[in-house]
């Protein structure tokens, strides 16, 4: 199935979890938030979050400036 991650289309296996996808995408473990279909998924839920076909995953990076 196909998902969109940070605007890029990716093909993934049906059983892939959010944690798998993030690892493959090289997402840092700290200082990021990940939204699936417009809602942030808490980090502890990444390994048990199954993605639906056509899901939109967005990796947000914390910025500190003010």
């Amino acid at each position: 199935m196909t998902i969109t991650i940070n605007g890029q289309q990716r093909r993934i296996e049906e059983s892939t979890t959010l944690a798998d996808v993030l690892e493959e995408f090289g997402t840092p473990a700290r200082g990021v938030a990940v939204a699936v279909d417009g809602a942030v998924v808490p980090r502890a839920s990444w390994p048990r979050t199954q993605l639906r076909p056509e899901a939109t995953v967005e990796i947000l990076t914390a910025v500190q400036g003010g």
């Binding site: 840092p28 700290r30 200082g31 990021v32 938030a33 980090r43 990076t61 914390a62 910025v63 500190q64």
Partner: peptide
């Protein structure tokens, strides 16, 4: 953001 990024990353 439970934790900040590693120092130097951002």
């Amino acid at each position: 953001y439970p934790e900040p990024p590693p120092p130097g990353m951002v």
